[in-house]
Design a binder for these strands. Structure first.
Length: 561
RNA sequence: AGCCUCAUAGUGUAAUGGUAACACCCCGGAUUUUGAUUCCGUUAUUCUAGGUUCGAGCCCUAGUGAGGCUACCA
């Protein structure tokens, strides 16, 4: 896409202001994933935002973007996820440099801040159970009631908290809570839990801790400690901002970050919830987090989606506080837009029908040159073998062609792409009436030349030489991803994935396509192009753009599907 | 029910009190040895009602609708 973005979104506007007014001399942002799953296209929006802001202000000394793992819940987090997240952020094209952090590296600091709050009379140890705490929190319209432990002395709380940390209590026996306002209309301010006891092994800190901080407490402290200036998060944290600010105001932190919320990405036909994606993986409905049907970055990568196209997409969708659902067609457009100018073309036949050229001896050629890219002569030509027996697409021949069908039919002419114009002579059918073979004749002198006067030929079709063409596994995709929301599938995920959205067929392809690197597979998208499986992992394996397009409804059913 | 946030073509976003625009999608046309690409074109937009103002998509009030909040998740 063009880089002309004349208007700043509301966040970039705030940042520009903070820079011009001198509020900040440098901009520090961060991408803070919890390592509890793989990154998906929704995370790409946040990554492109945070790292993008850093990149856009690269001229401002000190501006940078941190990658920080928000790993405060050992029950959900794994090192495998840490590694995949690093891989995906890099693949997307961003670099955190030296600034890789773990919230778990700050556990001592969080602890000290908690002690500070206790000492200031702003936090207390509560023995209430989770159920009691919930019950006493009140509800949306009625205020909560105070825990009997709310007025414990500072000394008592200090002692209790030390014993919590020392492991003297079992999980759930007590928690540390902030003393704020049990009558607040904002539920987050009704004495939120700061620390809970978890005798769990942490992927980073091992068994060093048995108390773990809650997100609301840890996150502002993490931001402040790293001198983050703008803490960008999604809309569901809006109601948490007063609490975020409360911790910043009452803890001994070295800076004052500002939380700003934006709407998360929703895509049509796409399951984006990490919880649901995890379920799809764990229940074996997909082959893994990088299943090409998934909207994970690793799935998209495997599917052949180029990282720049995803970045362009993130730029294109804008940034607001409005809960919207972006049409997945916009993503597909960016992919095509990126692939089209550079991807070399190849021919392939998915559903083969044999054509015998009866008068081949009239102009027998060994091979014909085909341009690798129709608009880019610099991409060069390749020699494609041709002979008197070819495969063409079954959909490219119709016994009784409707109006506006310009391909092969009884007595009709059609162009073999890069080769001759041929004319249908006859065809054979089996007992069921299915066409099994076509006899045709070449029109001599039409390779690289226009159709002679009197011959109507409006289309050029893909073909593969039967003698030298090769079989290749081709992935057939319908559209993107999953096709329904799991919530709409009471019986689990069975109906979530359209089985037809990922099928493998053996296609006839020209040797130049079959000779792609090992591990290569072709994908046939609804919009009509091949892209290479894992092409970003394999040097020399380039996306191969475009077979025939999906044929229009105007004359019949869409080809491919 | 209370509090917070949001509302601009079908979709996603611009317009910073001064002529409502761009992209995608859809549809139509031209070119085309990929029914692709490219090019041109059509349709369609400020949630409602008041108010402020010479002038309101923008400011104010009320209503309507949507999302969020009652984890020892993030």
């Amino acid at each position: 896409m063009t880089d002309t973005a004349p208007n700043l979104d509301f966040i970039r506007e705030i940042i520009a202001d903070d820079l011009t007014t001198g509020k900040h001399s440098a901009i520090l942002t961060r991408f803070p994933p919890e390592p509890n799953g793989y990154l998906h296209i929704g995370h790409a929006k946040s990554i492109c935002l945070n790292f993008g802001i850093s990149r856009e202000n690269a001229g401002v000394t000190g501006t940078r973007c941190h990658l920080r793992f928000d790993d405060t819940n050992p029950e959900k987090e794994e090192s495998e996820y840490v590694e995949s997240i690093k891989t995906d952020v890099q693949w997307l094209g961003f670099d955190w440099g030296e600034h890789l952090y773990f919230a778990s590296d700050y556990f001592t600091f969080f602890h000290d801040c908690a002690v500070h709050l206790i000492a200031a009379g702003l936090a207390y140890v509560d023995d209430d159970s989770a159920e009691e705490i919930r019950a006493k929190r009140g509800n949306l319209t009625t205020p909560g009631t105070h825990s009997p432990r709310r007025e414990r002395t500072v000394e008592e709380n200090l002692d209790l908290f030390a014993r919590m940390r020392a492991g003297e209590f079992k999980e759930g026996e007590c928690v540390l809570r902030a003393k704020i306002d049990m009558a607040s209309s904002n539920m987050n301010l009704r004495d939120p839990v700061l620390y809970r006891i978890m005798h769990a092994h942490h992927h980073n800190t091992g068994d060093a801790w048995c108390i773990y901080p809650m997100y609301d407490f840890a996150h502002p402290l993490e931001d402040a400690l790293e001198h983050i200036t703008h803490s960008l998060c999604t809309l569901e944290f809006e109601n948490h901002r007063p609490l975020y600010d409360w911790f910043i105001d009452h803890c001994p932190v070295p800076s004052k970050p500002r939380q700003i919320e934006f709407a998360r990405l929703n895509l049509t036909y796409t399951v984006m919830s990490k919880r649901k994606l995890l379920q799809l993986v764990q229940q074996g409905h997909v082959s893994g987090w990088n299943d090409p049907r998934l909207p994970t970055l690793s799935g998209l990568r495997r599917r052949g989606y180029p990282a720049p196209a995803i970045r362009d997409f993130c730029k294109r969708i804008g940034l607001t506080k409005f809960n919207s659902t972006t049409d997945v067609a916009l993503l597909e457009f960016e992919v095509r837009d990126f692939l089209n100018p550079s991807s070399p073309r190849r021919m392939a036949v998915l559903n083969p029908l044999k054509v015998v050229l009866d008068n081949w001896s009239a102009e027998p050629l060994g091979h014909v040159p085909l341009a690798n890219h129709p608009q880019n002569p610099a991409a060069g030509d390749r020699q494609v073998a041709i002979s008197d027996e070819l495969w063409i697409e079954r959909d490219d021949f119709m016994v009784d062609p409707p109006k506006k069908f310009y391909r092969l039919g009884p007595g009709r002419h059609v162009r073999l792409r890069g080769g001759h114009i041929i004319r249908h002579v006859s065809h054979e059918t089996d007992a069921a009436g299915h066409v099994t073979l076509i006899h045709a004749e070449i029109v001599p002198g039409t390779v690289g030349a226009d159709a002679p006067a009197g011959i109507e030929c409006r289309a050029a079709i893909h073909w593969v030489d039967a003698a030298t063409g090769m079989d290749a596994q081709v992935r057939l995709y319908d559209r993107l991803f999953t096709v329904a929301d799991p919530d709409g599938a009471p019986d689990g995920f069975v109906s979530v994935l359209n089985p037809a959205s990922l099928t493998t067929v053996t296609a006839k392809v020209e040797p130049a396509l079959a000779q792609a690197p090992a591990g290569f597979a072709c994908q046939f998208e609804r919009v009509g192009y091949f892209i290479a499986d894992d092409c970003d992992h394999q040097p020399g394996c380039q996306p191969v753009f475009n077979r025939t397009v999906a044929l229009k409804d105007s004359w019949g059913k869409q080809a491919g599907r």
